[in-house]
């Protein structure tokens, strides 16, 4: 049995962080911009789906605003409070939610049950946690993951929020990540 020395543990984590964040890590100049947050969330989304579920997501396009063109069956939502106020919603079609659950738990299901809801919440939490690390802004607090299920449900953010949508495709279906960001002048507390 091998035990790692403290400096080895730290070196390994820092090495992991540097390879994870080498691109795109936001610069001080760009990180206050909504696009900076969007880039961080997109990179984290791709990484979480790949590493946790073995699912390759391809980002197809960005939409400035909501994307109502698709019906989704489940949404994992995590809020960010602090110097930046934002809400991130990872929106899943049933097929993709089931594929993630199968990859993570080895469980085959034909409906969105409790375990699928758990997986959606966990994925949303990791996506936003990873984005927060990439964004590297101090004093950001993540809210508790909220999962909404139901065919064709809609999750909306208030009108004063700028919404950026990123559309992804995969062999198991398409998904959308919506980021609602309150303009920074109003969000400072």
């Amino acid at each position: 049995m091998t035990e790692m020395a403290g400096q080895d543990i730290l070196a390994e984590v820092l090495q992991r962080n540097s390879s994870l964040f080498q691109s795109p890590r936001e610069t001080q100049e760009t990180k206050d911009l909504p696009e900076g947050i969007q880039t961080c969330v997109e990179a984290s989304t791709v990484q979480v789906f790949k590493t946790m579920c073995g699912i390759d997501l391809t980002r197809n396009e960005r939409i400035d605003g909501r994307c109502d063109a698709f019906n989704f069956d489940a949404s994992g939502i995590v809020t960010i409070t602090g110097a930046t106020q934002a809400t991130v919603a990872v929106r899943f079609p049933k097929q993709l939610a089931l594929a993630c659950t199968n990859a993570l738990l080895g469980k085959t299901s034909d409906r969105i049950d409790e375990e699928v809801v758990d997986v959606i919440g966990e994925i949303a939490n990791m996506v936003v946690g990873g984005a927060k690390e990439r964004f590297a802004a101090p004093n950001l607090t993540l809210g508790l993951p909220l999962v909404v299920t139901g065919s064709g449900h809609r999750v909306l953010m208030p009108p004063q929020v700028n919404i950026l949508s990123s559309l992804f495709s995969s062999a198991s279906g398409d998904c959308i990540v919506e980021i609602g960001i309150k303009p920074s002048a109003d969000s400072r507390e």
């Binding site: 960010i80 809210g143 909404v148 064709g152 809609r154 999750v155 909306l156």
Partner: peptide, 9 residues
């Protein structure tokens, strides 16, 4: 946090 609103059947 920012509020969210959910609707659906």
């Amino acid at each position: 946090s920012l509020p969210t609103v959910t609707t659906g059947e």
